[in-house]
Design a protein around this nucleic acid. Structure first.
Length: 113
DNA sequence: CATCTGACCTAGT
DNA sequence: AACTAGGCCAGAT
């Protein structure tokens, strides 16, 4: 058996949580890190998501923003699939690279999962 | 091989 | 309440 803090396990867990985010909702790196047991590993979450683009099944990485509701990862998305456009397509209003009514659309993996 | 950087956050001063 | 430092850990220079 793997240890609870195994690297691959972490990666899989991140994918799992992100895939569990319902359409029209968003969550934060910190929330994911926290639910995984490493509250300060939020940076790692971003690194994992970077790799997630070619993953199967697809990972809706566009539903993950930073703690202030800002689309800090938007610059890392392919030009064809901008983060903001995908979110707006799901009903999330984006203004100035920030989620409008962030608290309302925020999906807390700790609470909901 | 040493140092810096990054889709961030929390805790301490 | 504003600011600094530390943590996380792999990739890039």
């Amino acid at each position: 058996m793997k240890d609870t803090h195994d690297d691959r396990s972490f990666e899989q867990d991140v994918y799992d949580v992100v895939r569990a985010i319902p359409p029209g909702r968003v969550t934060s790196y910190g929330a994911i890190a926290k639910v995984l047991g490493s509250a300060r590993a939020s940076r790692r979450v971003g690194w994992v998501l970077n790799k997630s683009f070619g993953a199967e099944p697809p990972v809706p990485a566009h539903r993950v923003v930073n703690r202030l509701g800002m689309l800090s990862g938007a610059i890392h998305f392919p030009a064809d699939r901008p983060m903001a456009a995908q979110l707006e397509g799901e009903g999330v209003r984006i203004e100035n690279d920030t989620v409008v009514d962030f608290e309302r659309v925020f999906w807390d993996p700790m609470r909901e999962l």
